[in-house]
Each structure stands twice: as structure tokens, then as C-alpha cells.
Amino acid sequence: MNVRKFFGSFRFAVEGVRTAMYEQNLKFHLASAAVVLIAGIVTDLTIIEWCIIILMIAIVIGAELINTAIERVVDLASPEIHPLAKQAKDIAAGAVLVFALASVIIGLLIFLPKWL
């Protein structure tokens, strides 16, 4: 294994995250994650609850990164408006929505009993 090449690949990954940081939806997910992390600190979550919260944040942000990549590839492959291109982008966005809604439900299941 080429160690230099291996660690160089991290540079590309970080560049990808930095590029996606300009996306409005990713900014929203990151801001939401910050609010949830602060709420978790204030609420004194258990280690298991922290693991679940961190996993859900990672899933939603990861899904948003994949969605952004799909949108860019579709735009490159089909610069003109095409029904299949729209469907691909809508489906990818729908996947993010499913994960985001699941994370909200899980967050409510974790936080509400502690707050009420």
C-alpha cells in the first residue's frame, strides 16, 4: 500500500466536503447538527444516546453529500432539462429527506422524555 497516496486521498475527501459547504441544504443540516449537539450537552445524554445522535448526524450529512454529488453528475451528463435527470435528482433528494425525517423522530424519542 502506498501510504503517501492513501493519505493524499484524504485531501480530496476534505476538498469535497469544503466544496459542498456552499450548498444551502448542507449548511442547514450542519446548523441543525450544532443545535442538537448543544442540546445533547445540556441534556446530559448517555453514551448510547450520544452514539445514536452522532450516527444520525453522520447519516444525514453523508446523504446530503451523496445527493450533492449525484446532482453535479446529473447536471454534467444532462445539461438540458430531461425528465429522467429530474427524477434522479428528486429521488436522491428524497433519500436525504427520509434520513432527515428519521433523525428528527429519533431525536424526539431521545430528547422529549428527558425534557418533559
Rank of each mutant, 00 (worst) to 15 (best):
residue 90 D to T: 09
residue 79 P to T: 09
residue 55 L to I: 08
residue 94 G to H: 04
residue 3 V to Q: 04
residue 48 I to T: 15
residue 107 G to F: 01
residue 11 R to A: 07
residue 111 F to N: 05
residue 56 M to W: 06
residue 37 L to T: 07
residue 14 V to S: 10
residue 34 A to G: 08
residue 42 V to Q: 05
residue 25 N to S: 11
residue 72 R to Q: 07
residue 40 G to E: 01
residue 25 N to W: 09
residue 104 V to I: 09
residue 57 I to V: 06
residue 51 C to E: 08
residue 39 A to K: 03
residue 15 E to W: 02
residue 97 L to E: 02
residue 82 H to G: 05
residue 51 C to V: 11
residue 11 R to G: 02
residue 4 R to S: 07
residue 83 P to A: 14
residue 67 N to T: 13
residue 13 A to W: 13
residue 36 V to T: 07
residue 78 S to G: 07
residue 105 I to K: 03
residue 110 I to P: 07
residue 108 L to V: 14
residue 76 L to D: 09
residue 81 I to K: 12
residue 69 A to F: 11
residue 37 L to I: 13
residue 101 L to C: 08
residue 94 G to T: 04
residue 103 S to I: 04
residue 87 Q to W: 15
residue 17 V to M: 01
residue 115 W to F: 12
residue 60 V to E: 02
residue 20 A to Y: 05
residue 18 R to S: 13
residue 74 V to E: 01
residue 19 T to A: 15
residue 14 V to D: 09
residue 65 L to F: 05
residue 97 L to G: 01
residue 107 G to T: 02
residue 4 R to N: 06
residue 28 F to Q: 05
residue 21 M to T: 12
residue 88 A to G: 13
residue 34 A to S: 08
residue 36 V to I: 14
residue 56 M to N: 09
residue 64 E to C: 14
residue 64 E to D: 15
residue 90 D to F: 13
residue 97 L to W: 02
residue 88 A to C: 13
residue 60 V to F: 06
residue 4 R to V: 08
residue 49 E to N: 10
residue 111 F to D: 00
residue 83 P to W: 14
residue 13 A to I: 14
residue 48 I to E: 12
residue 79 P to G: 12
residue 11 R to Q: 09
residue 27 K to T: 00
residue 57 I to K: 00
residue 84 L to V: 14
residue 84 L to E: 08
residue 74 V to D: 04
residue 116 L to N: 06
residue 5 K to M: 12
residue 80 E to I: 11
residue 109 L to I: 10
residue 92 A to L: 08
residue 6 F to K: 09
residue 81 I to N: 10
residue 98 V to N: 03
residue 31 A to H: 00
residue 67 N to Q: 12
residue 77 A to C: 14
residue 87 Q to M: 10
residue 3 V to L: 12
residue 113 P to F: 08
residue 111 F to G: 02
residue 84 L to N: 10
residue 22 Y to L: 08
residue 36 V to M: 08
residue 19 T to S: 10
residue 44 D to M: 13
residue 105 I to N: 02
residue 53 I to A: 03
residue 50 W to T: 01
residue 112 L to A: 15
residue 103 S to A: 15
residue 56 M to F: 15
residue 87 Q to A: 13
residue 43 T to V: 06
residue 90 D to A: 15
residue 36 V to K: 05
residue 99 F to D: 05
residue 83 P to S: 10
residue 34 A to L: 11
residue 21 M to V: 14
residue 76 L to Q: 10
residue 73 V to C: 01
residue 28 F to E: 06
residue 77 A to F: 10
residue 58 A to S: 11
residue 30 L to M: 15
residue 30 L to T: 09
residue 28 F to N: 00
residue 8 G to R: 06
residue 58 A to C: 10
residue 47 I to P: 05
residue 33 A to Y: 00
residue 92 A to Q: 02
residue 49 E to S: 12
residue 47 I to R: 13
residue 13 A to P: 00
residue 83 P to D: 08
residue 33 A to D: 04
residue 5 K to Q: 13
residue 53 I to Q: 00
residue 35 V to A: 06
residue 37 L to N: 05
residue 7 F to P: 03
residue 51 C to Y: 07
residue 68 T to H: 15
residue 91 I to F: 08
residue 7 F to T: 12
residue 103 S to P: 01
residue 72 R to G: 01
residue 114 K to N: 03
residue 106 I to S: 11
residue 26 L to F: 05
residue 1 M to E: 09
residue 10 F to M: 08
residue 100 A to K: 09
residue 69 A to C: 03
residue 57 I to M: 01
residue 87 Q to I: 10
residue 31 A to K: 00
residue 11 R to T: 07
residue 87 Q to F: 14
residue 105 I to E: 03
residue 93 A to K: 15
residue 60 V to G: 01
residue 71 E to T: 11
